[in-house]
Simulated assay, not measured.
Amino acid sequence: MEILVIGGTRYFGKRLITRLLDAGHRVSVLNRGSSPAPEGVTELRADRNDEKALESVLAGRTFDVVVDQVCYTPRQAAIATRVFAGRTRRYVMTSTVEVYEYEDSAFPVAEGAVDPATVAVDLGLPWEDPEFLDAHYGEGKRQAEAVFAAGAEFPWAAVRVAHVLGGADDFTGRVAHYAERIRAGEPIAVPPVNRPATYVYVEEIAAFLAWAATETDFTGPVNAHSHGPLTTAEICAAICAEIETVQGGGRTAFREVEVGEVSPFSFARSYGMDNSRAEALGFRFSHSSEWLRKAVSETLSAATVAQEG
């Protein structure tokens, strides 16, 4: 298949591209050129926010599937609906569990809780402002999905990705944040009622995206996560166990915070999703207990090497 990946030069995007290449597909990668594209792909350089530049670099090209790893706003989605009309047979957008930030009525939450066809779109908001976008990450994804639902001429799907764990190249710093506090015996800030959330191993989400791009033709949103919701305490226990094994010592302490910032991977509301639609479509997820310790070990080992270097 001819596959275009927009973004995808780091973390699970790199793993997705490797899987696609290993399966024999022809892969093009479109980005601004700030990060090198993996070997074996056709590199296309353009700013996805520049519609004319996209039209120019894609002139004469068509794709079986486009996998969009970096669609964060409804404006970007609107450009994509115009630029890729007639250029792709299918479009897969990487979305997020954060689209459910206003939905706290059920645990776990299914895709129907946020129907893109009913989400209001406001293209006039300051989506280019990094601070605004960071503060409205989930809303940006919700509205991007809504744009595809309302105006795409091609079949589209949105993969709502759970929080991702694992990998030596985890750039989020979340696991490291916990490890530093556990090593020092410093308290970890959590809300008074700390809800569990669903997670996914970095290799598993790459496998799911590759499957979604090449082995199925479902449309609309789908939740993607491993079985077995995790609590902050369970994640900390895995981190603490790894620290004790490698370095000795380490203690987990929590401090409840009524108002103010809490630690990552701690939630006053549930971010637990229902993955039954994905499994009914044919994908089989693992259980978090199968990979949690491995995921923590990968990330902390890399962080230790970086510190020693």
Rank of each mutant, 00 (worst) to 15 (best):
S297D: 07
R293Q: 14
W156L: 01
E308M: 11
A278K: 00
E131S: 09
I17P: 06
E43V: 13
G60H: 06
T18D: 13
F267P: 01
P264Q: 06
R284V: 12
Y72C: 03
G112M: 06
V119K: 02
R160P: 09
G248W: 03
L230D: 00
P264K: 07
R32H: 09
E215M: 12
N223E: 02
D170R: 01
E98D: 13
V41P: 07
T73L: 06
T42A: 12
A46Y: 07
A106Y: 12
A184G: 07
K294A: 12
G260I: 11
D68R: 02
W291I: 04
A302E: 11
A85V: 04
A80H: 14
L44W: 02
G249P: 15
E308F: 09
G138V: 10
V65R: 00
H25F: 08
T219P: 01
V5P: 02
R19S: 13
V262E: 04
E101N: 14
L292K: 04
Y72P: 01
S263C: 08
A149S: 12
L125S: 11
V222D: 04
I3Y: 02
G13I: 01
P264I: 09
D122S: 11
C240M: 08
T118S: 09
L21E: 01
E180T: 14
M273G: 13
R19L: 15
V114A: 07
V259S: 14
A162G: 02
N223W: 05
A224Q: 06
T304F: 09
V41Q: 04
S270T: 15
A212L: 10
R10S: 15
Y72G: 00
A176S: 10
A152H: 05
A295K: 00
L44A: 04
H163K: 10
M273D: 02
E258I: 12
G8P: 06
D64I: 05
V305N: 02
A184R: 15
A206Y: 03
G7W: 10
T198R: 08
E98V: 05
A144Y: 08
W127D: 03
E103C: 09
S270A: 13
A162N: 03
I182Q: 02
A303K: 08
W211S: 07
E39V: 09
V121W: 04
A268T: 08
L20M: 07
F84H: 02
A158F: 11
V164Q: 04
L30V: 14
F254H: 06
H177R: 13
V114S: 05
L4K: 05
G86H: 05
A157S: 14
S56A: 15
R142E: 05
I79F: 03
T216S: 15
L125F: 08
G309T: 10
T9W: 03
E43Y: 08
H163V: 13
E256Q: 14
A117D: 10
V92N: 01
R183P: 07
K14Y: 02
Y91L: 04
S276Y: 03
L300E: 06
H227K: 08
E111Y: 04
A210P: 06
P191I: 03
T62G: 09
A197E: 09
I239F: 12
V202P: 03
T299F: 06
Y91F: 15
A197S: 15
D115R: 10
V193S: 11
V109D: 00
Y11E: 06
L230I: 05
E258C: 00
E39W: 00
Y102H: 11
R174V: 14
S276T: 15
R90V: 12
A233G: 06
V57K: 00
V259W: 05
N194A: 13
E103R: 12
